[in-house]
Design a protein around this nucleic acid. Structure first.
Lengths: 214, 214
DNA sequence: GGTGCAGTACTGGTCGGTCTAGTACTGTGG
DNA sequence: CCACAGTACTAGACCGACCAGTACTGCACC
């Protein structure tokens, strides 16, 4: 990454955040030393402390930067759905896209990093939950709402429906990744098969012809 | 906890594991010192090292002990369902029970502890996943299979249905707990309401009258 | 009197953060 | 185009704290 009019200071800061991200993600918070980050960034420790008051602040910046980078992508994916011509196909596409995006190696590591440090830095975890997790549900929910308005779905509580959608879609792969560190990642084809199966069930429950229960 | 014919050595060992569990769970692996565990257990460091070769081993023992304690409970809960007289009521009962059991403060902390250290100790995470997570799915799955045989459900792939069940049930509360550290736990009533809503949707998708999709 | 343990001191190492002394860069006024 | 001043950066020593794991001493109970 090279940015044109970037001042030296800004460039260094970016180098630091990049190096820190890589280090934290692969060795954890406690497992990463400031020395290590400095070396990786090609920078002296002093410079790090010029830009970030302490390790915790740097860590926060790392998380926030990664989160911001991801947030915008979600709405885009969800938007695909409202424009889709065929419901089933659109849902499948969206499910597959969410699946492969969310099960990305880097993102998973980050996720585990946040969970691991949610105690130490509660604000970070809460931010991620609200700006990442809840936001994803909300945008998917509003999308379901529109489809319901057009009689393509039947979701009395779209937000809940969204949580059911993601829960069914991700429960197995996400838990596997969290607990096993995703050592032997599922193949993309595998994940997409799972996504398709979920869409099928979702449509039985929430499709236009779904019966209310009892 | 007091056990009668327990030798002093065994008693000490149990004290150590108990103290270590409390310490690890509340302060994390790196945040807990052996000194601290020794003090909490009313034991000298030397004694700890007599029973456990090193910190990592002790940690492993802590996790394994807690896991074992939990595993058996699952089958029992699932078994409730095969005996239930009314399907909806039985499912509701089971969903509520799983919900409140799994969302227990202590268990959640343990879960986060394992995720946080899945890198450092891969075997632990895998064990927990196989003996806890997958086992839960399997026993719920075989339960669904029986209900399908009796035409009370319609689950072509019972294991998948179980994952959908748990995913819908737990996606929101589990993620919230993982990321926010469950600082402001949901009320039991809240969780049970969520459980009931999930059961309703699950029955639309998998109840005996559910239509195939498309 | 011997054994096992508590208590504590010690070792070797790591790490966050600071300090210092000197070097490279940058932008302004001549 | 140059000189100079101010700022950012490097390299490395350094400090205090902490910690896993070991060694030793003395007490208390068998």
């Amino acid at each position: 990454m090279k940015v044109e009019g970037e001042t030296r200071s800004a460039r260094k800061e970016r180098d630091i955040v990049e190096a820190a991200t890589a280090a934290f993600v692969s060795r954890g918070y406690d497992g990463t030393s400031m020395e290590e980050i400095a070396t990786k960034a090609g920078v002296s420790k002093q410079t790090i402390y010029k830009h970030f008051t302490d390790k915790e602040t740097l860590f926060g910046e790392v998380i926030r930067a990664s989160a911001a980078q991801a947030t915008s992508a979600f709405d885009a994916v969800a938007a695909l759905l409202t424009e889709a011509e065929f419901l089933t196909g659109g849902l499948q596409q969206v499910a597959r896209l969410f699946m492969t995006t969310l099960m990305d190696e880097e993102r998973l590591r980050l996720r585990r990093l946040i969970i691991a440090n949610a105690d130490r830095m509660p604000q970070l975890g809460r931010d991620w939950y609200e700006k990442g997790f809840e936001r994803m549900l909300a945008s998917m929910g509003s999308c379901f709402q529109q489809l319901t308005d057009r009689n393509l779905l039947r979701t009395p509580d779209p937000y809940l429906a969204a949580s059911h959608f993601f829960g069914m879609l991700l429960w197995i792969p996400m838990n596997e990744a969290m607990f096993t560190g995703n050592k032997t990642p599922r193949s993309k084809a595998d994940l997409e098969r799972h996504a398709d199966a979920t869409v099928e069930t979702f449509l039985v429950a929430y499709g236009p012809q779904a019966q209310g229960s009892r």
